[in-house]
C-alpha cells in the first residue's frame, strides 16, 4: 500500500494523517464549546503578564 511494504512504517505514515484528521474533526466538533466569562483572575494575570514582558 502506497509503495511502503513495511507494516511499521506504513502504520506510522497512516497514523500521521489519521491523527491530523482527528485534530480537525475534534476541533470542528468542539469549536463552540468551552467559552468562559472573563474572571477577575484573568484580568490580574493579563496585567502581570504585561509587566513580565516589559521586564524583558
Amino acid at each position: 500500500m502506497l509503495g511502503i511494504e513495511d507494516k511499521g512504517v506504513l502504520l506510522a505514515y497512516l497514523l500521521c494523517i489519521g491523527s491530523s484528521i482527528l485534530c480537525v474533526l475534534y476541533g470542528l466538533f468542539a469549536r463552540n464549546k468551552g467559552d468562559e466569562p472573563v474572571k477577575p483572575e484573568d484580568l490580574k494575570w493579563v496585567s502581570e503578564e504585561k509587566k513580565v514582558e516589559e521586564n524583558l
Binding site: C23, Y26, G27, A30, R31, N32, K33, G34, D35, E36
Partner: peptide, 10 residues
Amino acid sequence: SRRELNRAVV
C-alpha cells in the same frame, strides 16, 4: 477560554 484551544487544535 477553552473554546479557543478547541479551535486551535484544527
